[in-house]
Nucleic acid binder design. Sequence first.
DNA 1: GCTATTCATTGATGGCGATCAATGCGCGTG
DNA 2: CACGCGCATTGATCGCCATCAATGAATAGC
Lengths: 244, 244
Amino acid sequence: MNSVPIPITPQGLQIACSACNLRELCMPVGLSDDELERVDSLIGTRRKVPRGMPLYLSGESFTSLFAIRTGFFKTEVVSEDGREQVTGFQMAGELMGLDGIGTGQHNCDARALEDSEVCVIPFNRLSELSREIDTLQHHFHKVMSREIVRDQAVMMLLGTMRAEERLAAFLVNLSQRFSSRGYSATEFNLRMTREEIGSYLGLKLETVSRGLSRMQDEGLLTVSNKNIRIHKLDELKRAMSPRC
Amino acid sequence: MNSVPIPITPQGLQIACSACNLRELCMPVGLSDDELERVDSLIGTRRKVPRGMPLYLSGESFTSLFAIRTGFFKTEVVSEDGREQVTGFQMAGELMGLDGIGTGQHNCDARALEDSEVCVIPFNRLSELSREIDTLQHHFHKVMSREIVRDQAVMMLLGTMRAEERLAAFLVNLSQRFSSRGYSATEFNLRMTREEIGSYLGLKLETVSRGLSRMQDEGLLTVSNKNIRIHKLDELKRAMSPRC
DNA sequence: GCTATTCATTGATGGCGATCAATGCGCGTG
DNA sequence: CACGCGCATTGATCGCCATCAATGAATAGC
């Protein structure tokens, strides 16, 4: 469970960024052919991460960012006194590792929740290239900024919402992200356990379970283990607000 | 209370970054004289923000970052359904506005908690210059990354800590930041109300008040309105952890 | 296919912090 | 100085969610 995954880079299977179907998610738009080629060259290797394995661990030295090609991750911070907090769930097209730039060390654990593959982006290469291509520079800054905004939204959730509101917000967020990747907005499989959801939402796993059951009773959705079918997405969205 | 503060830039009082006593806080180290001069030229203007006035509001278009020269700010996000969440308190040497890069619009309100002055850093100038000076580029990336790490620490606080632990963490954090600016680590004045502290910590103002009173009863500190005198900083640090 | 283990559900109970409420204090204003 | 208002403190009560506990279902490993 704690061993380091083996980097695998099957050369024959390399897919250039310019040809990647996640292009709109992790690359800037409006690059010239020349620039595209240079951004392609950024991706040193790919790396497969089997389910349960860490992509990186807190304290490891930071050298690269990671763009998820396939799969699903969680990031988790552990405090000095042993408390664990899931800080996010990441899916295809999203970037991981930004927290390591500041100190040169990763500041959280990133673990695959299903067999996954990431593109390894050496950070000093990205820095160089973003000095030459302003579109890339700006894109990178936007990505970091959006991460900050996302974190602020989580603070709002943890600071002001009640249990079922948090749960509704969580499901709606997942729904939107699946939807924007071409998957169903109303039916999907949770990759994480109730406990991981609870950690992310500042709740205990029993509360998560009860919340889902309650929503099912109310006809908002159907839960069958990790499978979620949302019947009333609009009502679920309303359930994010108090007193409905 | 809601009018826009008047930008004031008394030319005679300009202080170059290279001569600013906050240099170590907001500037990279190891710049050449030439580079220093160019970074100096980044700061377009200064702006005074009287207590209670906004530096920027959510939705306003983003053009500049702001480095605090003097004073104290809070940042606050307001959700669609009207919930308010204080996302941070900022003091001299800290940078504000990073959340606006992603969308081109500010995503939170920044309000002065005391009469303050900020350095206005036009973002496109910063982008240009950081393409030319790698030290500056790297410094900027570090600052953004540290903001993400800070936000993760707040998530941990909101997600896992009980009321008094949160309060202790808050006070210890303030203490450290005052200390690193040359002020006392053990006596300082809170610039924010109990309600603002509560919003930041995910608590009600009564809970904040009770927590402070309790800590006073235990001899950890003395509270007199906004004045805090910490008597046992080490015990306060221990109070951040459960079951002491 | 069977067993072990993790994961999820549901119930009963309790405690922490929210809520409601009243009083007191400090500060800016007239 | 008196007044009003925002801010803070403290008490009493309530409710949401944590905790403790037991059962059941699903998954992995042999």
